[in-house]
């Protein structure tokens, strides 16, 4: 118990009540995911378009339009999925203090959500394979609520996520029994 305490004292506290942004590395991560999604969607549309082109008897202007539409959709989707992570990053932030955690997210539909420490049932920190490459982790907070039984914060640096998790977990002698 004592060594755990001194270790906590040694680390700079995450629970300082300051407004923090997500880790900037989440932007290239999301953009990479965006490329993958664009590639998959583009491939699927390509097959659909190719089969329609070859199989169905259509007027020639439609046959010309199909590849143009496909290219347009691919470019638009690719561009949007590169742009969105930057926009989303600007509008996401969180605050950790002694009482709990508050998460702000959302660009068009905005939401602030507050989870007191005494309401945290347990927490997970998860990392997918891509996230591991970028050093990003997702903090998943389980509460006793119904709509907010799971509150997830994606895009934290892995160490930060671990620090927040340690802070949120009830320690010995806490009042959350």
């Amino acid at each position: 118990m004592e060594s755990a305490l001194s270790e906590v004292e040694r680390q700079p506290s995450i629970a300082d009540g300051a407004v923090r942004r997500l880790d900037p590395r989440v932007i290239p991560l999301e953009q990479l995911t965006g490329w993958i999604v664009t590639a998959v969607v583009s491939l699927v549309l390509f097959f659909i378009g190719a089969t329609t082109l070859l199989a169905a008897p259509l007027p020639s202007w439609v046959k010309l339009a199909i590849p143009i539409v496909w290219m347009g959709v691919t470019v638009a989707l690719g561009w949007w999925l590169q742009r969105w992570p930057q926009i989303h990053y600007r509008y996401a932030s969180y605050i950790v203090d002694a009482v709990g955690i508050e998460i702000r997210e959302g660009v068009v539909w905005r939401e602030v959500i507050n989870v007191p420490r005494s309401r945290v049932q347990h927490t997970d920190v998860s990392q997918g394979p891509l996230e591991r490459r970028f050093g990003i982790g997702t903090l998943i907070i389980h509460t006793a609520g119904t709509e907010d039984a799971i509150v997830a914060l994606h895009g934290l640096a892995h160490e930060t996520a671990l620090a927040i998790r340690d802070h949120l977990l009830p320690r010995e002698g806490s009042d959350a029994v």
Partner: peptide, 26 residues
């Protein structure tokens, strides 16, 4: 359990917000 505040684009235009309270077993 959890308190949340929402703002849809329509809320933003009319300077309103929605407050949501989450409890267990609902």
């Amino acid at each position: 359990q959890v308190v949340a505040m929402h703002e849809s684009p329509f809320d933003r235009r009319t300077h309103m917000r929605r407050v949501r309270v989450d409890t267990a077993g609902a």
